[in-house]
Computed example of a mutant assay.
Amino acid sequence: MSFSIRPVNAADHARILALNLESEEMLSPMDASRLRELDAMAAYHRVACEGNEVVAFLLAFREGVAYDSPNYVWFAQRYPRFLYVDRIVVARTHQGRKLGPLLYRDLFDFARAAGVDTVTCEFYTVPPNEASRRFHAAFGFSEVGSQWVADGRKQVSLQIAAT
């Protein structure tokens, strides 16, 4: 079956929360209230669907929003225009089926159409997230910094890519 990408709607929120929980060891926790808050600030919040089933999502922000993530703030202090990938999640049952690349190609198309030439993201290096490192390298991301987060329990690699 083929996959489609569409904007998130409120009916998707329960599934997005379930997907986020499934991968929470590599993400920030998110409850329904936080999801509504992030969705309202998002420049890009889309889902990948197989038929009517949401099987992946990507949430990203432009510069200038009141997002309190230390990683978003790091980029906001250094880059005047950017699109920040807050999180991308693919259902465990659908990993390896090219949904991450499908969403990232759509995201980069969105950024170019909006005149944004820099996409930013981060991934954990402590604990290591080798799959994310390889994935982002394939999209041309490179490290521009690093920082400790989660009260010094985790380290992230701060990354940028040109659109």
Results as ranks from 00 to 15, higher is better:
23 S>D: 15
156 V>G: 01
157 S>P: 05
7 P>E: 13
81 R>W: 09
87 R>M: 01
93 T>D: 15
70 P>S: 02
127 P>S: 00
151 D>V: 14
5 I>Y: 07
80 P>K: 09
72 Y>K: 00
90 V>L: 02
120 T>G: 04
113 A>C: 08
74 W>G: 00
97 R>C: 11
27 L>W: 10
30 M>T: 03
97 R>W: 05
12 D>T: 02
8 V>K: 00
40 A>P: 02
5 I>R: 01
45 H>L: 12
67 Y>L: 15
109 D>Q: 15
126 V>K: 01
115 G>E: 08
10 A>W: 08
105 R>T: 12
33 S>L: 15
150 A>L: 15
26 M>R: 10
152 G>L: 11
99 L>T: 03
31 D>L: 06
109 D>E: 15
126 V>Y: 06
86 D>I: 07
82 F>A: 04
13 H>Q: 08
163 T>P: 07
39 D>L: 04
61 F>M: 02
120 T>L: 06
108 F>C: 04
114 A>G: 10
43 A>Q: 06
5 I>H: 08
58 L>R: 10
107 L>N: 02
53 E>F: 08
54 V>H: 04
7 P>A: 12
152 G>W: 12
143 E>W: 05
70 P>C: 01
69 S>E: 04
8 V>R: 00
129 N>A: 05
54 V>Q: 06
109 D>C: 15
72 Y>T: 00
18 A>E: 15
56 A>M: 04
97 R>Q: 14
41 M>C: 04
99 L>W: 05
69 S>G: 01
85 V>Q: 03
104 Y>K: 00
128 P>L: 12
7 P>W: 11
149 V>Q: 03
98 K>S: 14
161 A>Q: 11
126 V>C: 01
34 R>C: 05
103 L>N: 04
133 R>G: 09
130 E>Y: 10
88 I>N: 02
42 A>G: 00
46 R>A: 11
67 Y>M: 07
146 S>C: 10
152 G>R: 05
62 R>I: 03
36 R>V: 09
83 L>C: 04
41 M>S: 03
127 P>I: 02
54 V>G: 03
112 R>H: 12
68 D>K: 13
14 A>Q: 15
152 G>V: 06
101 P>S: 08
117 D>S: 14
156 V>I: 06
122 E>K: 00
26 M>V: 14
162 A>T: 15
87 R>V: 01
85 V>N: 07
82 F>D: 02
18 A>Y: 09
53 E>R: 10
78 R>Y: 06
69 S>T: 01
40 A>C: 07
127 P>K: 01
50 E>F: 12
51 G>E: 14
68 D>W: 11
78 R>H: 06
84 Y>L: 04
9 N>Y: 09
40 A>F: 03
6 R>M: 10
76 A>G: 02
133 R>C: 09
29 P>F: 13
13 H>S: 10
140 G>Q: 11
150 A>R: 11
146 S>M: 09
102 L>R: 01
26 M>L: 13
4 S>E: 15
32 A>S: 14
46 R>T: 14
152 G>D: 12
98 K>G: 06
123 F>Q: 05
88 I>W: 05
23 S>M: 14
81 R>K: 12
122 E>N: 10
74 W>S: 00
148 W>Q: 11
48 A>N: 05
132 S>P: 05
105 R>M: 10
96 G>V: 13
38 L>C: 12
145 G>P: 02
121 C>R: 07
105 R>N: 13
16 I>C: 09
118 T>L: 13
123 F>E: 08
46 R>G: 08
84 Y>T: 02
88 I>Y: 05
17 L>M: 04
